[in-house]
Every structure is written in C-alpha cells, then in structure tokens.
Design a protein around this nucleic acid. Structure first.
Lengths: 213, 213
DNA sequence: TCTCGAAACCTACGTCGTAGGTTTCACTGA
DNA sequence: TCAGTGAAACCTACGACGTAGGTTTCGAGA
C-alpha cells in the first residue's frame, strides 16, 4: 500500500470518515470493525484518524449518528394524527434497520440523545398530547413503541455474526403449540408481519385513552 | 500467581467455568471480558479453558445459557390463563435482566433456541390457544411481547459501558412536549412503570381476539 | 523569509484470541 | 509391578488490536 509523504494532506474529515466507517461495518460487521481496518480502507495511517475522532468509542458514536440521521423526518404537511406519525416513524426506522442490519445493534445499545432522535420523539409526543391523550399515556407510549421496535428489529435483522437465524423446527411432542404455529412464522421479518405487530402495539396504546362517552 | 504443576488437575469443568464467567461479566462488564481474564480469575492457564469450551464465542454462549436458565418456570399449579402466564414470565425475565444487566445484551443479540427458552414460549403459546385465541394472534403475541421486553429492558439496564443514562434535560423551547412530560420519566426503570407498559402490550394483544358477542 | 500550527506518519507497548507443542498425572492391563 | 495410554494441564509464539508519545512536513500568516 503506497503511503503519502509525511506532511501531505489526506483530505480526511469527519464526514469522509463517517461514510467509510458505515460502509465498512455494513460490509464486514461490527466484530471485524476497528481503527486499523478503517484506516487501511481510507488509505491512511491508523493514528491519523485520531486527529478527527477521539478513539474507537467515538468512532462508534459517529457511525450510529450517521445511520440514525437516515431516518426520514415525517413530512411537515402530513396529517398530524398521532397514529399516522407513529406508523410513519416506525416504518422509516425499520427501513433504516434493514439497510444497515449490522450497524443496528449499535443504536439499541446507546442512549439516543441526538437532535434527530429527540426531534422524532417530540413530534410523536406532541401529536399525542394534541389529540387529547393523558400525559401518562403520552409519556409511556414512546417507550413502549421504541422498546418494541428495538427489540423486534434486533431479532429480525439478525444482529448476530450474520443474517437472522432461520426459524427452527419444533418437535411436535415436546412443543405441540409451537409446532402448530410454525407455518405462521414462515414470513419472519416481512413488512406485513411488522405492520401487524405494530398495529397490536398501537392498539394497546390507544386503549389507554379514556373512552369518549 | 502460583501455578499448578503441569499434569495436575485444576478441577475445571463447564459448570465452574460458567459460574466464574457470569460473575466476571457481572463485575467487569462485557467489554473487559476475555479468555485470559477468566483464566486468571480461575487461577488457570488461558489455554486450559479450551479443553472445556471451544473458544470465546462458545464462552459467551455458555454465559447466556447460564443466565437464561435463571428465569424461573411458571409453577405448574398456577392458573393457566394466558395473561397470568405472560405477566409472570415477563416479570421473571425482568428480574433476571436486573440481576445481570451487563450480561443481558448478550441474550438479546443471540437467537434463543435453548430448551429453557422454548419451554417458556411453549407454555405461553399453549395457554393462548387453550383460551381460544386465533392462531395468528398466538403466533404474533410472543414476538411482540419479547420484542418489547428485550428492547425495553436493554434500555433500562443501561447495556452501555455502565448503568443506564439518567433522563436528560429537555429544552422547553425546542422540545415543549417532552419537557412537559419529563417529570413522568423520573421513575425510569421502576417495577410500576414496567408493569404499566406490560399492561399496554397485553391490552394490545387481547384486543386482537374477536369480541365475544 | 521565518515561524508556527495542523495534519499526517512512525515507533512502540501492552493486550487479546488461539494454533501447536510439551509435560505430567491417573488409570489401565499384562 | 510396570510400561502404555489418553486426558488435562501448561508453555511458546504469532498476528491483530487500541492507542500513547514523538517526528516530519506542508502551507498560511507575519
């Protein structure tokens, strides 16, 4: 690998690093990601990265931020009913998870306090309050929703070494109930399945609102 | 560190290794866990562990299995209504997560196909079918439930370097809705909160059943 | 032209997972 | 009683990792 002379610019900056880092994790997975590999990918000495990012942990932060920014904001003109906002956000979040299945575990593990994440939450919460939902429900709902989204998408996108494990066979003697349902789990990870489950969660939230007489 | 002579037994076996490994992760966290550290903890040469466990990945499997086995089975004599089964299982799962917050991320990341996990699922599924819930609901419900459990508990137990991040301050100008709800998030991670959210999820599932006329 | 900071590179250290080889013990059957 | 044997431990060594600390070079401002 031909290296640059010592003082010449390599044109590094956070943006270029972020893009390369995400691509590297997408390709090789989190396990194989590291400072040295990223540097080689960029044609650069490992230590040069430290002028732009503090270290490996900070690199992971950069990656998760970059990927989270892909979750599209709900368009301003769209209807403001809270269920619509929740559905749109959830699907956009899911799309991102499927685009970057090997990055996704990183998001789930860190507390999300970036402006993008907070803005999405704020839109959901204010839509719920505008619809007259009690504060307790508006407070619980996003945690239930994102709890479900994170857990479920983690399972669907595999998050292990590589892709999601196929649904196992069930011994009908030991597990009669699961064997009977096995065929229903064939489309594991489909949009239809996701939307159905999302519906269950949203139903649960809607049910918390006091019934209008 | 005084080492044993070369041929003498160190009394190693999978059980002893599992116990020490779980304790080590509980104490130092997943990041710091490694073959060499575990060996030192056991007063043993690192390579000796390879006679009982294939390598680091297999060690992590051993850890997650040991911890999952702590989730108590729902007692046989207990009522068989599916909501009771679900609630008990969920709470027992939560207790385990809080007992081993630093191990928990390991569980979420791997597909759970151990007998313990399958047995718990089977109990839930068969209780739902016995109650007359449609197969589609019985198939979706466990995925929604464990999706929520995994995602939510991951957030609550912190799963990062150490404990859960405290709830951040919200700028009332940028995020009016969330600022208004901030006080409701004070008891983040409490049993009461967990039980409330669990109730929301179970409500959603119950709502899928066809209404008895 | 001289200076100086930014940005790159280089060296080196301690740690990691683990392949491959060596040593010793307990148990066997003759 | 004693060589033979296999299990279980230990030892050595290698390549890859994250990163502290130091050195070199370029280009912009004085």
């Amino acid at each position: 690998m031909a290296r640059r002379a010592r003082g010449t610019s390599a044109g590094l900056d956070r943006e270029r690093i972020a893009v390369a880092a995400v691509a590297l994790v997408d390709r090789d997975g989190l396990e194989r990601f590291g400072v040295r590999r990223l540097a080689e990918e960029l044609g650069v000495d490992p230590m040069s990265l430290y002028h732009h990012v503090k270290g490996k942990a900070a690199l992971l932060d950069v990656i998760s931020e970059a990927v989270l920014a892909e979750v599209v904001a709900v368009p301003e003109g769209a209807p403001h009913d809270w269920e619509g906002v929740a559905r749109r956000t959830a699907h956009s979040y899911r799309d991102m998870a499927y685009r970057h299945p090997r990055v996704f575990p990183l998001l789930v593990t860190r507390a999300q306090t970036s402006p993008v994440a907070l803005a999405a939450l704020e839109r959901l919460v204010s839509a719920m309050r505008a619809a007259g939902l009690p504060d307790r429900v508006a407070a619980d709902a996003p945690m239930v929703l994102f709890g479900f989204l994170n857990g479920h998408l983690l399972a669907c996108t595999g998050s292990g070494p590589e892709g999601p494990a196929p649904v196992p066979e069930f011994d009908p003697d030991a597990y009669p109930g699961m064997a009977a349902l096995a065929s229903r789990w064939a489309g594991f990870g489909s949009v239809a399945e996701f939307d159905r489950m999302l519906g269950i969660v949203l139903d649960g939230i809607r049910g918390q609102a006091p019934r209008p007489a």
